[in-house]
Design a protein around this nucleic acid. Sequence first.
DNA 1: TTAATCCTTAAGTTTTCCTTAAGGTTGGGC
DNA 2: GCCCAACCTTAAGGAAAACTTAAGGATTAA
Lengths: 222, 222
Amino acid sequence: MRVLVIEDDILLGDAIQAGLKQAGYAVDWMKDGVSADQALSTEPYVAAVLDLGLPRLSGLEVLRRVRGRHTPIPVLILTAKDTVEDRIKGLDAGADDYLVKPFDMGELTARLRALIRRASGKATSSLTARGVELDVTAHQVRYQNQLIDLHAKEFAVLQALMLNTGKVLSRSQLEAQLYAWGEEVESNAVEVHVHHLRRKLFPELIETIRGVGYLIPNEGRI
Amino acid sequence: MRVLVIEDDILLGDAIQAGLKQAGYAVDWMKDGVSADQALSTEPYVAAVLDLGLPRLSGLEVLRRVRGRHTPIPVLILTAKDTVEDRIKGLDAGADDYLVKPFDMGELTARLRALIRRASGKATSSLTARGVELDVTAHQVRYQNQLIDLHAKEFAVLQALMLNTGKVLSRSQLEAQLYAWGEEVESNAVEVHVHHLRRKLFPELIETIRGVGYLIPNEGRI
DNA sequence: TTAATCCTTAAGTTTTCCTTAAGGTTGGGC
DNA sequence: GCCCAACCTTAAGGAAAACTTAAGGATTAA
C-alpha cells in the first residue's frame, strides 16, 4: 500500500510521512506540484494526501491533471481553516475527502483507510478469500478461527493479493506497491514473504503463475 | 430495485422515501435499528440509506451486523454536521459513502445510483472464441467449464491469436509478439506451442494456412 | 543504548518449461 | 503418383524461474 504525500511544509510533511509509515504504508513525499504530478502518473499509489497550497503547480491544478488522466485514485486534500472556498473548489475538482489543518493523525489515517476501501469497491474493511480473513483496520488475519501472526511485509503482500483476488500480480507490481521510492529491494524478498505466507496459512492459498506472477484464485475454481 | 431507508425522524424519513420513490426505487422504511437489521437479513435490497442516530440499536451497530454477515450491499450513511467522529467510525464499519445533513435529495439519488452501479459492475477482461474463454487478468483459460493449465508461452500464443480472431498471423508475426528483442528463437518453437494448444484444447481451434500462418476462425465458419 | 524482532540478501536446491532437433506426415505441384 | 516443402509430433537436455534456508543487517521497541 503505497501512498503519496504532497506537502511543501517540511515540518508537517515529515509528521504526516512518519504517521503514515507507522500505519503501515509505504510513503513517498513530494514537495512541489510538478514532481507530484510526475510521480502520480507513473507510480502505483493507492491514495494521495494533497495540500492545496503548493509552489510551482497548485494543488488544485495537480488534482485537475490527475482527473484529466482519468486516474481513479482517492485524493484527500488538506486545507487551512479559513479557506472554505478552496475546499469547495477541491471537492469540485475531484477530491474525495478533505481535512482542515490542524488535524489529528489518527483522523487522517482513518479517513485514508476509508477512502482506500471505498475505492477498491469492497464493502467491508475485511477481505475474505478461501477461508482467510484479513481485517485491514485491526491489521489481523484469521484462518480457521485462529489468529495468524503475520509480520508487516507479509501482511502487505497478502493484502495486495487479496485486494486483487483473481488477478495475477507480477513480482514487480507487488514490489512497486510495497516499497516507496528509495527503498526498493533488489533481491527475492517478495518470494520469501510469499513462502512465509504459505507456511503460516496454507500452500495452495497463493498460486504461482510461472513467468508471470502470483495470484489468489477466486472461489469457485475447480 | 428495492432499497431500505433507516431513519427515525418522521419528517426526514418521509422526504427521503418520497424522493427515492420519485427516482424509481421500491422503498422500505424502518424507524429503528432492530427492525432494520431484521429486514436487511431477510429482504433482497440493492442498497440501504442509514441514519447513524437511531433508537434501540444504533446505526453503527446495524452496519456492523450487516457486515458481520458478509452482506455486500452498499450502505450510505447520514450524519449530522458536527459528528465527524461518527462518520469515520461509520466508514470504518463498512459504509460505502456518507452524506452530511442537511442534504439535497438530488445528491442523495445521485450518490445512491453511483453506489449501486459500482456494486454491480465487475469488469473482467476476457476474450472468447469457439467456446474457449481467456481471462487476461487471471491468466486463466477455460474450455467447457474446465480450467486448462497453459504454460506462459502457450498462453501468449493463444492470446495473440484470439486478439486477432479471423485473421491469419504468420509465424514471424507470432514470434515478434512472443519474444523481446535479443531473445529471438531460431527453431520451430511456435509450431510446438501451437501443437500443445491443440492438444490441451481441441485440434480444430487453430487452423493452419499452409505457407501463410495460423488463425482462429470466426464463429459461424465451419 | 541494548535487545529483540523483522527484513533482506544470497546461495543451494528443486521444479518447470522452453527450445531444439530429428523423424514422421501431409499437401500440392509437376 | 512422386517428390519436395511445409508442417506435425515427440522427447530430451538445458536453462530459467521459483523454492527453501539461514545468516547478517536493519529496524523497532524497551
